[in-house]
Design a protein around this nucleic acid. Structure first.
Lengths: 363, 363
DNA sequence: ACAACCGTGGGATACGGTTTCCGGACCGGC
DNA sequence: GCCGGTCCGGAAACCGTATCCCACGGTTGT
């Protein structure tokens, strides 16, 4: 009449089942499996045999309760469909796997409520770190929100990692992995300017998005450096999608505004812009040059292949995970650690392909 | 001298800490938080106050050990970068979130070892289901391997779901969510044939990949239906990537083989083919027509926009999760369930855009 | 007036492992 | 032949939570 011994039991086999069947103690089974304690060859064989027969796997929940367990990183992303984000995720996941870590993925869909819920969920899961991906909207509330996340996670023995956004202000326990966003935009705009372009349509992205702000700043700085007046009227903000690129160009042409090049905030935006130019009977790059940003696979798959800024997304993912792993191994008492390695910046560079030519007619 | 009471304790707060500080029993705290037991308003307030003060979250591992816990689905994918896979993942993740489920993601990188390791890892995690994404290589070993996974997972109270591959043979406890792969290829090829194309370069994918096999079969059937002899010499196998599309067309042109259309196994392959045609001075679609398969965003971002077969990837993901959820709620004793809803097939359809025209010169 | 009952709160136990602490067996050396 | 050291197996104490069962004060019914 024992409660849990019905032989046709549905649940998974426990370590006790293995022990019983192998005629040894529970502790011995555990020792054989973790291998951190000397065990006779004979016993080892017997246990492994039964483990195989029963197709036993240890219960990860029980294991992590008892102290062990595989570390897990959570990746929080706005939209899993974005190519850039996918590459970061790949980097994180790959590096995690390499260390035997596990990775969780959650999507926030640009919803702060959901983001909060996910961070709490991850805290419950006891993840080693929460990686937040993608540019942030620079609202007032944002800094406080992230600082709150950082402290909550830190208090729970976890850690917040921001990838692709600017670091938090003040003494907040978070790590930032960033790239030289503004520098990339500066180089890209310089490339257009040195080719002779002067009237450039700029599509940096949403005006509140930190990524867009940086890219716009870089472009402006390049114009200054070249002594070319920057016309704010040539800037059109909008989301980082194909439709925005298309419509921005379409509208600008309709308004009769003259331009010889498009500086798109993203490769996808560039693709939309290119399509709109074609639809208007303009050739790329003969009539209008186009450049993008990100260097996702799409960039080299378009015709003409897109000149763009390479962002090391996958490496950022790897670096982010390494930072977490180091910190975790480094010191149990991580409180000493100041702002040393808390902000990592990776470089960007222009990839020249076939979408830029000197303007046909100089202004 | 108590072992675990150092007030500056690094770890997270436990339910005991909350209980102690609120002056109530552990059971009461648990009740307040789960809300499935009557509790006085006064006690509820007091507990919630302390929970807020301590920023307490329940330990998910302990919770699932004790019986509760949020169900988790694992998504196993070859390459997280693939657009099609990303959409399935989005569907699964979205539907999971809707139900309060969690989703894990692992990448196998086409490595069977790693696949096995991941399945076992997921089994340890006690996931509600493991979703395997993408076409499979139809080796002998494959069926046995999958059957093994299915039985292991089933025995552990979990479940195997195959998405985008053909169902397993025999009485295996697995669910398959599939799409009408062959039918889509049939329709796509018919579209080309009815436009008058007769010499078609076919790039179905790797010859052992089930997806490629189905797409090739569909094309052949269409040729038969149109009474057009199918020339095996016009088929070139290779991976589903841009480079393969490019090289296949390049080589075919170099060999002087004549064709008026390309039936690509994937939109990405079509993109490569398009680029190669352009590089050879041929216009699309004036000189050569191209069609793809999958209908990923890229298809509508190319110039000309690609005529392709729409595959409901995201919906497949949603359907897969719903199948798992239904089964889980449906009956604890799922052994009754036969082959009823174990194989779901979703429809495909041709999306006509601008990459097809009747051939300039009839053969 | 006493028993049955209802609404709440607390104590104890189970979940499946890991790990520490001990005791016993076996071996070798003197 | 005895003693000490080495090695390994068994029992038990946790890990943090959910839940079962019981106790307790007060109300209602007979």
């Amino acid at each position: 009449m024992s409660q849990r011994k019905a032989s046709g039991d549905v649940g998974r086999a426990t370590i006790r089942d293995v022990a019983e069947r192998a005629g040894v103690s529970v502790a011995s089974v555990s020792r054989v499996l973790s291998g951190n304690y000397p065990v006779s060859e004979e016993l080892r064989r017997r246990v492994l045999k039964v483990v195989g027969d029963l197709d036993y796997v240890t219960n990860a929940h029980a294991r992590s309760l008892a102290g062990g367990g595989t570390p897990t990183v959570a990746i929080l992303i706005n939209n899993i469909t974005g190519a850039a984000f996918a590459h970061v995720a790949k980097g994180v996941e790959g590096a995690a796997t390499l260390r035997g870590w596990l990775s969780l993925v959650g999507t926030t869909g640009d919803d702060p409520e959901r983001e909060l819920a996910l961070v709490n969920l991850m805290r419950q899961q006891g993840v080693a770190a929460v990686v937040l991906l993608g540019g942030a909207y620079d609202f007032d509330e944002y800094q406080l929100r992230m600082a709150g996340f950082a402290r909550s996670l830190d208090a729970a023995g976890s850690h917040l990692v921001l990838v692709g956004r600017p670091p938090l202000e003040g003494d907040v326990p978070a790590t930032t992995v960033d790239y030289d966003n503004e520098g990339g935009a500066y180089a890209m705009a310089s490339h257009l300017l040195s080719a002779g372009h002067r009237r450039v349509l700029v599509l940096p992205g949403h005006s509140e998005l930190t990524t867009a702000q940086g890219r716009l700043r870089g472009a402006q700085r390049a114009f200054e450096a070249y002594g070319v007046p920057f016309d704010p009227g040539m800037v059109r903000h909008g989301p980082y999608d194909y439709e925005h690129g298309y419509e921005a160009v379409e509208d600008t042409l309709k308004e009769g505004v003259d331009f010889t090049a498009v500086l798109a905030g993203t490769d996808v935006v560039a693709a939309g812009a290119m399509q709109a130019l074609r639809a208007a009977g303009l050739r790329v790059p003969e009539d209008v040059s186009i450049v993008g940003y990100d260097d996702i696979p799409l960039a080299s798959q378009l015709t003409p292949q897109l000149t763009t800024v390479h962002v090391p997304y996958e490496e950022m993912g790897r670096v982010a995970l390494r930072a977490v792993a180091d910190r975790r191994e480094g010191g149990g008492t991580g409180r000493r650690r100041g702002n040393d390695g808390d902000h990592l910046v990776l470089g960007t560079h222009v990839v020249v392909r076939n979408s830029v030519r000197p303007p046909a007619r100089r202004d």
